[in-house]
């Protein structure tokens, strides 16, 4: 086997091992589990209607609309359902069925439980790092 192949294979193996570690050990945050079937259906609707094109979760996504990480915690399910089912002048009305709206709200409720964004009290260390107090609760 020539050395080029060895180098490429080592890079790919490193990438795979690191990915495996991230998938299992790094993201095993049980606060973020979609616990019920409605939330799981909601996640698929979230993908289908591409809500992330305008909204963010943890600050990641499009900037047309507000971040929805703690939407349910801050505003509640009724408020969120109203927006999702009717839209506004700036958010399209997707003409979703009542069930689908509920599913999306359940999904957002699980997102809300997964953590806090924006952080109210980021612990900033002298070397510029931040500690997230709620990172992986037992």
């Amino acid at each position: 086997m020539n050395y080029k192949r060895v180098i490429f294979i080592s890079i790919i193996v490193t990438a795979s091992l690191y990915s495996y570690k991230v998938y299992t050990d790094g993201t095993e945050n049980s606060n973020g589990l979609l616990t019920n079937e409605k939330a799981k259906a909601g996640k698929l609707l979230w993908q289908e209607y591409n809500c992330i094109a305008c909204h963010q979760l943890y600050g990641l996504g499009g900037y047309m609309g507000p971040d929805l990480t703690n939407e349910i915690g801050l505003k509640g399910k009724v408020y969120a359902s109203a927006f999702i089912s009717m839209g506004t002048s700036r958010m399209p009305n997707f003409k979703l069925k009542k069930d689908e709206v509920d599913d999306l709200v359940e999904y957002l409720a699980c997102v809300n439980k997964s953590g806090e964004y924006p952080l109210k009290n980021p612990g900033i260390t002298p070397w510029g790092d931040i500690t997230i107090s709620n990172a992986i609760r037992p």
Partner: peptide
């Protein structure tokens, strides 16, 4: 996809 943190 069924773990919010893993998904993101």
């Amino acid at each position: 996809r069924n773990n919010v943190i893993r998904d993101i």
